[in-house]
Amino acid sequence: MFEGHDPYLVALSVVIAILGGYTGFGLAARIRGTPDASHRLLLAGAAFFLSVGIWTMHFVGMLAAPLPADSVYLVLPMIVSFLMCALVVGISLFFVSVGTASMLRVASSAALLGLGIVSMHYVGMHGLAGNFAMTHVTGMVVLSVVIAIAAAYGGLRAFLARQGGLQLLLSAIAFGVAVSGMHYTAMAGMEVVPLPAGAHHHLEGLVASPQTLSLVVAVLCFVIAAGFLLSLVPDSRRTASAVVEEATGTPLADAGAAPTAPRLRPVPLGGVGQPPHAAPAPRLPVEGADGTHFIASAEVRSVRADAHYTKIHDGIRERMCPWSISEAEAHLDPSLFLRVHRSHIVALSHVTFVRKEGDGAIVELDGPSPHRVPISRAKIAEVKARLGLAHRTV
């Protein structure tokens, strides 16, 4: 498959695909929930970096291939291939980033993403021109489609399993395998046939030389690397809240409040040696562009883990809270709230709908903008009991 290819450019192409996947999936991980203006911006950024990663990997791979010396690239098919890729990636990310990520939705998004990668490849290949003709082995074309869809599915599943850390890295690696594996499999099935002596391939439209393409690819590699490095920079607002909490034991939300009597926590009956449990909080801190606000726990519909912090849904939209999901669970009244998933807490009194889905279930919570939350398989029985459905099938 790699016979005659430049091994350094092959390695670079895979790394570029992984970096683009890490940056794109990292941005997409922040947009699950009710869409708003900022979520649309994140979705656009995620689609951009994933598309640039796919497109750049493809043409780095082309530069690594042993193509005829007179090869040139038609600019129009190159641009069309990128726009096609961006559109398909954006649609597939939208499907898995909002609402409930059901098996059907993930499989459909993976198929769309895989087919988009394949389409981008062959449209881009159509832009390769010179005194030769290209043919493709049907079996290798089919195999490249299967590899792209299967690896895209693995990448999306890993991405949905958890929104950061090792799982995000695994999803990026799977994404890199999806793109590079499909590309080099398709290249292995491509045959370049020189035209007969005296015959010349007529070129129409603007063309770019391999040297010009190398310059464009180098710039895009820099863009991807810069995006990847920026994605590793901690959020200064979140870092500040963590420092305040560690130094004072008080959430950043309380830092600007008037001094009050210290919060007294009940001592457990077990006595010495047992960690104290936080008393239920009537209000939770949420951060906005103009500062920190407070939301009554009675207005909370759900709490979703977001790295070391949480997103609180009040029935209208999600808002960032400086507490971790464990801290939020400790401060919420356990008679009213239940942790139904390792990343989700719901207010049982606001549940309006419950349904079995896959290995788990989902619940819908009321409000002007109703939203759904997944329930892990281990929590289904407890949710049914708390909702009075212990003897019914969800």
Rank of each mutant, 00 (worst) to 15 (best):
T34L: 10
T34N: 10
P35L: 09
A37R: 15
A37N: 08
H39I: 09
R40G: 15
R40C: 11
L43F: 03
G45I: 12
A46G: 15
A46F: 05
A47R: 11
A47K: 08
F48C: 03
L50R: 09
L50M: 15
S51T: 02
G53N: 04
I54M: 07
I54T: 00
W55P: 13
M57P: 01
H58F: 10
F59P: 07
F59Q: 08
V60M: 01
G61A: 13
M62A: 08
M62S: 14
L63P: 07
L63A: 12
A64R: 14
A64P: 00
P66G: 12
P66A: 09
P66M: 04
L67K: 10
L67P: 09
P68A: 07
P68W: 15
A69D: 15
V72G: 05
V72E: 14
Y73R: 07
L74H: 12
L74Y: 02
V75C: 04
L76D: 02
P77K: 06
P77N: 08
M78N: 10
V80R: 00
V80N: 01
S81E: 05
F82I: 04
L83H: 03
M84I: 13
M84E: 01
A86H: 02
A86F: 10
V88F: 08
V88G: 05
V89W: 02
V89Q: 03
V89A: 13
I91S: 01
I91M: 06
S92E: 12
F94S: 12
F94P: 00
F95T: 04
S97H: 03
V98I: 13
G99I: 06
T100W: 11
A101M: 04
A101E: 13
S102G: 14
M103A: 10
L104R: 12
R105M: 08
V106Q: 10
S108C: 12
S108Y: 11
S109A: 15
S109C: 04
A110F: 06
A110C: 09
A111G: 14
A111F: 05
A111Q: 01
L112R: 08
L112G: 12
L113D: 00
G114D: 01
G114K: 03
L115S: 13
G116N: 08
G116A: 08
I117A: 04
I117G: 02
V118L: 11
M120Q: 11
M120K: 07
H121C: 12
Y122N: 03
V123I: 15
V123E: 06
L128Y: 00
A129K: 15
G130F: 12
F132C: 01
A133I: 12
M134C: 00
M134G: 02
T135F: 11
T135W: 04
H136C: 03
H136G: 03
V137M: 06
T138N: 05
G139C: 08
V142I: 15
V142P: 13
L143H: 07
V145C: 13
V145Y: 03
V145L: 11
V146T: 09
I147P: 04
I149R: 02
I149D: 00
A150P: 02
A151N: 04
Y153S: 02
Y153Q: 07
G154S: 11
G155H: 02
G155A: 14
L156D: 00
R157K: 09
R157T: 05
F159R: 00
